[in-house]
Amino acid sequence: MNAREEAGAGWRGYALVAPALAVIALFFVLPLGLSAVLAFRAKDGGLTLEHFAKSWELYQTDLTFTIGIVLLSTVLIGMVAILVAGYLTLGENPRAVAILRWLYRWPLFIPFIVTGQIMRTFLAKNGMLNHVLVGSGLIDPLAAQSVLDWRGIVIAFVWKQAPFVTLLLAGAMASLETQHIEAGRNLGAPRWRVLVDIVLPQVRGTLLVGLVLSFVTMLSVLSVPLMINPNSPTMITVDVAYRINTHGDYAVANALCLMSLVVAAIGAWFYLRQSTRALARQR
C-alpha cells in the first residue's frame, strides 16, 4: 500500500472508502431522497405540487425571513472573519495580536443550543446587554428593549460562526508566502490595501468554503430560532418541527425542507464552482 505502488491499488482504495460511503448513503442520502419523494406524493400515491402550494401559502413570510437572516449573518460573519484574521496576519502590535488570537476563539466549539440559551438571557430586556448600555449612559432605561427577535438570531449566529470562519481564514493567511506581503508593505502600501489587494485574493477559496458551510449550517439550525424567537415570523426550521410535532404533517414539512434545500443548493453551487476551479489550478 505504498504510495507509489499504484498498480492494483484501485479496488483496495475503493474497499477502504466503501464502509464510510455506505454510512453516508444509508443514513444521509436515503432519508434525503425520501424527503423528496414524500414532498411530491399525493394521498392517492400520485405526483402532486399541493404540498408546495400549501407551504408557500402558509410560510412564504418565514421563507423570506429565513433567507434574509441567514444571508445577513453570512455577510457579517465574513466581515468579522476578514477583519480579525487580517489583523492577526498583518497586525504590528504583537501584544494586541496575541490578545486577539486568544480572544476570538472562545465561541468556536460552543454548540448552537448553548449559544441559544446564552443569548436568550444576554439579549433579553433585563439581560446584561441592556444593563451595560443603560449603566454606561448609552441608552435611556426606558429605551431598553428585548433584542430577542430576528436581530437576536443574527447576533447568535455571528457570535457562534464567526470564530470558525476566522480560524480557517487565519490558517490560510498564515500559510501564505510572506514575500508578497512584505513587498507590498515595503512599497508603502497601507495595511488595509495589503489585506484587500494581496492577502484576500489568495485566500478567497478558504473564505468561500467557510462562508458556504456556515450558510448551510445556519439554514438548518433549529435550536437557536426555537429558543430566541419561536413566534412568527420565524425560521423555516421551526415551522418544520411544528408541522411534525403538532400535525404529524410530513408532506408539508418535507416540502418546506426541499425549499430550504434549494436555497442551500445555490450556496453549494458556489462551493462546487470554487473547488473545481481550485482543482483545475492544481493540474
Binding site: 453516508i24 443514513f27 444521509f28 442520502v29 436515503l30 432519508p31 434525503l32 425520501l34 424527503s35 414524500l38 458556504v212 458551510l213 448551510v216 449550517t217 439554514l219 438548518s220 433549529l222 426550521t237 418544520v240 411534525i244 410530513y250 414539512a253 418535507n254 425542507c257 426541499l258 430550504s260 434545500l261 442551500a264 450556496g267 453549494a268 462551493y271
Partner: peptide, 17 residues
C-alpha cells in the same frame, strides 16, 4: 454532504424510518 446540506429533512425522515 451532511455538512453542506441542511440536516433537517434527513433527521425528520430518518426518525420515521
Amino acid at each position: 454532504l451532511p455538512q453542506a446540506v441542511p440536516n433537517l429533512p434527513v433527521y425528520v425522515n430518518i426518525a420515521r424510518v
